[in-house]
Amino acid sequence: MSLHAEPEIRPVPPRPAYDGTSPFPRTAPLLRTPGARWQLAATAVIVAFPFLAVVLAGWVLWGNVLGPVDVVLAVVFYVLTGLGITVGFHRLLTHRSFTAAPALRLLLGVAGSMSFQGDVIGWVATHRRHHAFTDRPGDPHSPFRYGTGVRGQFRGLVHAHVGWLFAGDSSPADRYAPDLLADRSTRALARAFPALCVISLALPFAIGWAIGGTLHDALTALLWAGLVRVALLQHVTWSVNSLCHMIGERPFRTRRHDRATNLWPLALLSFGESWHNLHHAEPTCARHGVDRGQLDPTAAAIRLFERLGWATDVHWPDPRRLDGRRQ
């Protein structure tokens, strides 16, 4: 089976040789304009706002019981928005692991945008840049940014998990996602990101009120299926950036300096994204968990879409290629 072509990325000026252990060269912040400062402020709100869920959760649990409606809504919204990221933003739009029918592509984009992880074009551009410069200068969120010493790795872990969001190191969409910029529907979806975030919280609130009939029911649904769900999904996604480059197994060869690992405890919560070592060895593969017992709900969803005729040209793993990649 032939591989899908990865999206073309414009070449960048040559960088000094990297030895794999030194801190990355310092670069001047790229975001200096008033508009960029608003962007950083919006990022702060997106990241900090769900943390309120922790405080609110303590208040709700104090003398109260978490209701079954809250649990069901939280799981449903977590699955829908999580698969929007993993199936839609990641395996479809970033790596072109399959071709989706227009309606499915739009629905996945909407679901992913409701996860509070940034607009679709910015998300894809950042992730493609990560693959172009994995764990070496140019990677926007490598945990080895500050070197491989104990102190440097601790700083790098914080940077890879959440600090990179505030570094002002943008990934230009015209370089890393020109295909999405050229698509009118994707540009419209990116512009709709703020509205979709509001909808992502308004829907649990409205459904909780409709089912329970009280403001308390609406607020608990907003808390668990809105804020807590958003916070959990964000940190699971960011853990793939951070933990899945520092902890775990590396059964497959990757490019030089690429330290992506498989981290099984995150497999279910990340919908299979934490089989990160295989993903970096075969980025366009539609399945990341390729060995026995490796749960990959994202691949299962893609398989379902394929059987329904909504996904075609799926790049499933080739055992011979995988055997050639094993260490």
Rank of each mutant, 00 (worst) to 15 (best):
P14G: 04
R91M: 03
H315Y: 12
Y78C: 02
H159T: 03
N241D: 06
P265H: 04
G67Y: 00
H131E: 11
P204S: 06
L106F: 13
W209M: 14
I207H: 14
R129S: 13
S113K: 05
R175G: 00
V124Y: 12
R91L: 06
F77M: 13
R253I: 01
R250S: 13
P140V: 08
W238L: 06
I247P: 10
I85D: 03
L104H: 08
A281M: 05
A74P: 03
H127M: 08
T43N: 12
S171V: 05
D318Y: 06
I199Q: 07
A167D: 12
W123G: 08
V158C: 14
F89R: 05
G309D: 02
L196Y: 07
R175S: 03
V47T: 10
A299S: 08
I207R: 15
G147F: 10
W224A: 04
L30C: 07
L104W: 10
A299M: 02
P265A: 02
H141D: 11
C285F: 01
L157N: 03
D19I: 02
A5C: 04
E306S: 14
L56V: 02
P251V: 03
A101I: 01
P16S: 02
F24E: 12
L322A: 09
H235R: 04
L52W: 12
P13L: 04
L243K: 10
A195K: 04
S200K: 08
P140H: 11
P23T: 02
G149A: 13
Y176T: 07
I9G: 09
G138I: 03
M114V: 00
V60D: 15
F193K: 04
R255P: 00
A202P: 11
F154Q: 13
L31I: 02
A286I: 01
G67N: 13
Y146C: 10
G293K: 13
T261I: 06
R136D: 03
A231P: 00
T43M: 15
G82D: 06
L73R: 11
G20W: 05
W238T: 00
F271E: 04
P13Q: 04
V228L: 15
G272Q: 08
R187N: 04
T81C: 13
A100G: 09
W59G: 07
D313S: 12
G112E: 01
T220K: 12
T81Y: 03
V65L: 14
G213V: 01
D135V: 05
F116K: 00
P140R: 13
V60F: 14
R175H: 03
G109F: 01
T27W: 04
L308E: 04
L278S: 07
A260I: 03
H141S: 10
A41P: 09
T86D: 09
V228I: 13
P29A: 10
W164D: 11
A299G: 11
L3F: 09
L92Q: 06
G293A: 08
L201P: 10
E6L: 15
T99F: 00
A301Y: 06
R326K: 14
F133G: 07
S142V: 01
G168Y: 04
P140A: 12
R136G: 07
F205D: 07
